[in-house]
């Protein structure tokens, strides 16, 4: 497994470099914005002068660009995001409360979408041409092209408002008389289902195409010829290989899915990072927006890193 550990090391370094580049990009983006943080800082009333000084020195808005860039990089990498413009609270505190929520929503939906999508995609490719295949492809295509917030609203109307199966909004409601964890899961359910369906659509289509390619491969004939039962041919030999291109496209799916999470949090009034981000943008709360963007990107990168590891595990050919 020496190849594997080398592969992991190479991937880690690559991910870290990408992270540095993205951090730089975020820095440039915020520098390029027409509204300057220091102007906003000065117009924010409940900021005490000492706090302003602290923030000015923390972000060093008075210092030259290069110095500011360095301290920015150090601060970001050490998760020291300064103080929110709008809430006069350390950004890391605001975020630390919200990150697990979004992780639950986004992570849960993405992992489920992959498990179900790979299974379903493999299955419908195997039974291609049938009713299952046709209807799955049509449904996936429709979901893939639906605006996330709209399907979220429709689910909200149908399942929360009309049928009252799920709560309308929020994260936790102490008046529900449910155990804390159960109540949270109950609240997360609806947005997660919507996000799951949205992410699922892409995965199913991708997996189906990959599986159709794999079905034509010679080793599938070998697997059948040695007398394996259908399920083993399909999943052990077929899906295992078809997963490879799907896993390599994880990053695109993550980016898609996190976008969906941000939008859906706003539809479902789910107090996660997405809702925080939109609020911060409306109030031009730079430290919060910057930190949230960074954490979101970090989540995507780490997810992709995990995907790379899975890929390395799945495909012996890359472990060289």
């Amino acid at each position: 497994m020496a190849g594997m550990s080398r592969y992991v090391a190479v991937r880690s370094i690559q991910t870290f470099i990408t992270l540095l580049i993205i951090l730089t990009l975020i820095f440039i983006m915020f520098e390029a914005l027409p509204a300057k943080p220091q102007d906003l800082l000065a117009t924010t009333p409940n900021m005490q002068p000492s706090q302003i000084e602290y923030m000015v020195s923390l972000f060093g808005y008075d210092r030259p660009l290069s110095e500011r860039y360095l301290s920015y990089m150090v601060n970001m990498l050490t998760f020291d995001f300064g103080i929110s413009f709008s809430q006069a609270e350390p950004v890391s505190e605001i975020l630390s409360e919200r990150i697990p929520r979004t992780m639950l929503l986004f992570g849960g939906a993405t992992v489920l979408a992959y498990l179900v999508g790979i299974y379903l995609g493999a299955l419908i490719a195997w039974r291609r041409g049938g009713v299952l295949d046709g209807s799955s492809v049509v449904i996936s295509l429709v979901f893939y092209n639906m605006p996330s917030f709209w399907i979220g609203l429709i689910f909200l109307v149908v399942f929360a408002s009309e049928l009252e199966w799920f709560p309308l909004t929020g994260w936790y409601d102490p008046t529900d008389n449910l155990p804390y964890v159960i109540d949270i899961l109950w609240h997360v359910c609806l947005p997660m289902i919507v996000l799951l369906l949205l992410s699922l659509a892409g995965t199913v289509l991708l997996m189906r195409t990959a599986m159709l390619d794999v079905i034509g491969e010679n080793y599938m004939v070998t697997a059948k010829a040695i007398g394996l039962p259908e399920s083993k041919v399909l999943f052990k030999h077929g899906a295992r290989n078809a997963m490879l291109p799907v896993v390599t496209s994880f990053i695109i799916a993550f980016v898609f899915s996190i976008g969906g999470a941000v939008v859906l949090e706003n539809v479902f009034s789910f107090p996660g990072m997405g809702a925080l981000y939109i609020d911060a943008l409306f109030q031009l709360d730079f430290p919060v927006a910057q930190a949230t963007l960074y954490i979101i990107t970090l989540m995507v990168l780490l997810g992709n890193f995990a995907a790379d590891l899975i890929y390395g595990y799945l495909d012996p050919r890359v472990r060289i």
Partner: peptide, 12 residues
């Protein structure tokens, strides 16, 4: 490709 483009679009 690894940038969450929707999130950045919102910022812009």
């Amino acid at each position: 490709l690894s940038l969450p483009y929707l999130v950045i679009m919102l910022l812009f």
